[in-house]
């Protein structure tokens, strides 16, 4: 050691036990109103509308009321950072779609499906469903309502693919060994700014179709196929095959490990 140090500069640790500061702090604030100092600018409101993980992870007791389905929520990460409100654009596959979408979301984010413009103006999320699918397609046609509202209110459209609700109300009447699985898949938000209403509607349609067909593909793969690759969505499919595939066991579901056999 070549430098010389102060011999009295002790580095002994001062150990202090637990202290009570709450009382003195409470007394400090109690009954006192702080005045704005002269020259300090006045306070302005700081509203925040961005959706964080905390709001998405909010306790969702509604799930307890759907004990008869095995609900899987995919891609809720896409909602993080969005300004609320926004428009969910979902495919209509069965009668329980709206209820299941509401169950998949925390209370604050649950969308209404009536008086859409008024709900958006009151900063509530809304949902717009596609028409009933025809001709063996999985996703029906979207009308231009979602795009028009998105443009009018400058909000994002979140595509949602709901899988597994086809004839779910009838399926639930059966005495099944395993719960039917239902998947609610959220996609990347679509911004209407700078696009025509037809373009936005077309994009919503394509994204929802791909979410429904997405399966194991990553977002990047889906995006590239959507924009440049061949359309691999099933054009026609018999009803029994659709139900058959809907009921297939989930390949990605991990086996529960048991220590004690």
């Amino acid at each position: 050691m070549s430098r010389e140090f102060k011999s009295w500069a002790s580095d002994a640790k001062r150990r202090r036990g637990p202290r009570i500061t709450l009382v003195s702090d409470a007394l400090r604030f109690f009954g006192r109103r702080m005045r704005r100092p002269a020259g300090a600018p006045p306070e302005v409101a700081q509203p925040t509308n961005r959706l964080g993980w905390q709001q998405l992870r909010a306790l969702n007791l509604a799930g307890l009321f759907a004990p008869r389905v095995d609900l899987e929520v995919v891609g809720s990460d896409a909602l993080v950072g969005l300004d609320t409100p926004f428009i969910f654009a979902a495919n209509e596959a069965g009668r329980l779609d709206h209820q299941l979408l509401r169950i998949a979301l925390p209370r604050r984010l649950r969308p209404g499906a009536r008086r859409l413009s008024r709900a958006l103006a009151k900063r509530h999320n809304i949902v717009v469903f596609s028409a009933d699918p025809h001709g063996g397609r999985l996703v029906g046609e979207f009308d231009t309502v979602a795009a028009e509202l998105a443009k009018q209110h400058s909000v994002a459209v979140v595509p949602v693919g709901i899988v597994g609700t086809f004839r779910l109300s009838q399926t639930l009447k059966l005495r099944l060994v395993r719960k039917p699985k239902v998947s609610v898949r959220f996609g990347a938000p679509i911004y209407a700014r700078g696009q025509s209403i037809e373009d936005v509607t077309r994009e919503v349609q394509a994204r929802v179709e791909h979410l429904v067909n997405e399966g194991e593909l990553s977002w990047w793969e889906v995006e590239r196929r959507r924009l440049g690759g061949p359309d691999d969505s099933p054009a026609t499919m018999p009803r029994w095959r659709r139900l058959w595939e809907q009921a297939a066991p989930r390949p990605s579901e991990p086996q529960r490990r048991r220590i004690w056999r």
Binding site: Q46, T48, N49, R50, A156, P189, Y191
Partner: peptide, 13 residues
């Protein structure tokens, strides 16, 4: 003043 953020998509675009 520190203020909360808004969705920056428009600025990015």
């Amino acid at each position: 003043d520190a203020v909360p953020s808004a969705d920056p998509v428009r600025l990015i675009d």
